[in-house]
Design a protein around this nucleic acid. Sequence first.
DNA 1: TATGTTCGTAGACCCACAGTTACCT
DNA 2: GCAGGTAACTGTGGGTCTACGAACA
Length: 400
Amino acid sequence: MGYVCDFCAEQRSTVYCRSDAASLCLSCDHNVHSANALSRRHSRTLVCERCNTQPAYVRCIDERVSLCQNCDWTAHSGSDTSPAHKRLMVNSYSGCPSAAELSAIWSFLLDSPSVGDSTCEQGMGSMSITDNRLMDCEGSQKKNDIQDASVVLEASGLNNMDANKSTVWMGSQVPLFDPNLHKPEQTAGSSNPALPMVFPGTKGPAFCELDAFYDNFKMDEVDLDIKNYDELFGAALDNTEQLFDNDEIDGLFGTKDMSVSNCQGANAAEGSSVGTLNVAQPACSNAASADSVISCWTEPNLCFARQEHSRPTREGIAGDDQNFVEPPRCPLGPEISVHSSSRSDAVMRYKEKKKTRKFEKRVRYESRKSRADVRRRVKGRFVKVGDAYDYDPLSKTRSC
DNA sequence: TATGTTCGTAGACCCACAGTTACCT
DNA sequence: GCAGGTAACTGTGGGTCTACGAACA
């Protein structure tokens, strides 16, 4: 990873894809992420213009650079003057946005001197993404690939939003979640309250990411009941368990009153608030930026895949696996305003999955199983060889 | 609000019999 | 101690039955 696109190795990298862990130029970004429905779900954001290896999550207005949290901390926590810099959350996007939509998402780039002469601008211009294509993305996968819609929603949300008014802050404390913004009716300028909220610095409309989250959360492979998380993950997820324990579904989808204040309470032991996440230096030094923390939730594979191999105790997080990012205690806060239809779909999928879930039954003797599989039965009971039967597993027929 | 009925779900049970285990000679 | 014989026990899957809780009148 570096200054050049990881894909073509020619153009300057402009955006960062967490799912691919790659920095791409806009042209390659389009080519790569328009390949299929899954790749369109990848959430991308600007690449940090300082280290060029991490996804940017803030835009320093004064310095006109996009920074990852690490570089942001380095730049704005040390000196006396830089903390006063105005910064904007860098929005991420997914789907196949047009150049105009990208401009809307990152409006601050338009007045950036580094853009006009960069491949970024050229990339935007060279992108052959049309609005029709975008609509195709939406239309053809209206149900299955709702994240494509995030491009439209996110951009429209921003169009209606005064960027400077939305989330400008100063100092080293980064308000990832503004409790005032969590209210569903306050979608930061959105005229449609039904639209999912757009949270600067997080990934698009909450429900899109959550949908993927829910999908990945169905861990039939390990036969997980959510209530078993505590057993499996121990104290590392103790607070997370609080979110889920009351009611698996409602806990997951936030229909219970999971207010920000509750989350803060759950995080009290951690010594950091959620409403204004204190970006502690250790987290930065550990490469566990708030941005990556968010991606941890929105990209569950990243987290749980690791958890499959190692129990994520706090010690383990800090020591054994430096790359492991502990799931945040309550980043679901703003995202609990999941669209009702999305929620019902998710609930339906969950119930369906739960219904068909096979509680792991270990077959100790394969020979017995294979024999039982071919044994004839009467009303489910085994019968002697030669006796009348009503069910033959081999022929799937009934003799009487 | 209390009671009775209906419905859905989860879990126990049954069957034959090959393989395993424990015990005896 | 080793080998062989015997009895008791185990564990397989699909259908059925029963208990229980939720929903409704």
